[in-house]
Design a protein around this nucleic acid. Structure first.
Lengths: 161, 161
DNA sequence: TACCGAATGCAAGAATATTTCGCGTGAAGA
DNA sequence: TCTTCACGCGAAATATTCTTGCATTCGGTA
């Protein structure tokens, strides 16, 4: 796999390859090569280089939550009481360690954390809030937004190409 | 690739396979087979079945935004004026069509939409708000949360296994 | 008991990925 | 200007992985 991670320079070829891979990374290198006007080995070298530099952070399958018994997606804003570095780091570690917390960001503004949570039932969510928020002395309050429609979901980054 | 999408039953083997693919879909089927106690062809048939049923919605590379010149991630809550079906659908289509909008959910609660936006600069974000929010008569107000730290990012669904 | 459908493992064949090698290009220095 | 060197390329050979056909096994059912 990949290890090192010094920033590297990317040219138009690399961006074009990334644009394909972030939509479908099962695309054969030969096909990618035809699309960007490079040979398959050239494509493969560039991909490996970007994986080693962690430009490509992972290669993953996207699973439909509804079809695996986790039909509820919830947005939560969390406001903490104290923003000392220690307490914030502790909160980051705790939130990140919870499988139901699919995404978590530490943010500026009226809230301190925003997160995306995936659960099977509202009961499960209620239990999670009890453990994660009510059970944390540093959580001042939190606001819940239940998703009715996943209008757009993905991790694709807009690339200039 | 995949086409149909009737819901299908998943057993413990399928969930175990999904759990591996969610983390690294470049794992050889032979290795997956060893991990879940199945032969490689059995694994492959199950994967194909789940792709056809859209349990696996996509296979994608995850790109580091910072390394491709898009270092700013922003959370936005949007509140609309009118919630008629037509206007909501129009908003969904518009938001979904914008490349900078990485994720968008239609939600209950104090806001109507929440979204994740990826941009290269705050100037670019300001221009986007002008076009997307100030330029939309149905947007009552929006609140911005700038991410200081991407504590946890991914699309992995918690699987019971 | 006998049958039938579904899923499996094995093994062969096809497709894909990876390595190797030699060539051309462009930059730095004599 | 010439030489050298580093870099990235493509073509071909090699290795790995994926895919398919087939016989078998395991349950459920008449």
């Amino acid at each position: 796999m990949a290890q090192a991670s010094p920033s590297i320079a990317l040219d138009a070829f690399d961006l074009a390859i990334l644009n394909i891979l972030q939509r479908d990374n099962s695309t054969p290198q030969r096909v990618i090569g035809e699309a960007v006007n490079l040979s398959a080995p050239a494509v493969q070298r560039r991909i490996r280089r970007m994986e080693e530099a962690r430009v490509i952070q992972a290669n993953v399958a996207v699973v439909d939550p509804a079809q695996v018994g986790q039909p509820i997606t919830i947005f939560v804003e969390v406001e903490v009481i104290s923003e000392t570095a220690e307490l914030i780091d502790a909160a980051k570690r705790e939130f990140a360690s919870v499988p139901e917390v699919q995404q978590c960001y530490y943010v500026t503004g009226e809230a301190d954390f925003v997160m995306v949570i995936v659960v099977p039932t509202m009961t499960a969510y209620e239990a999670l809030t009890r453990r994660l928020f009510f059970g944390n002395n540093n959580v001042k309050r939190f606001r819940t937004f239940v998703a009715m429609d996943r209008v757009k979901v993905g991790l694709a980054v807009p690339l200039s190409d």
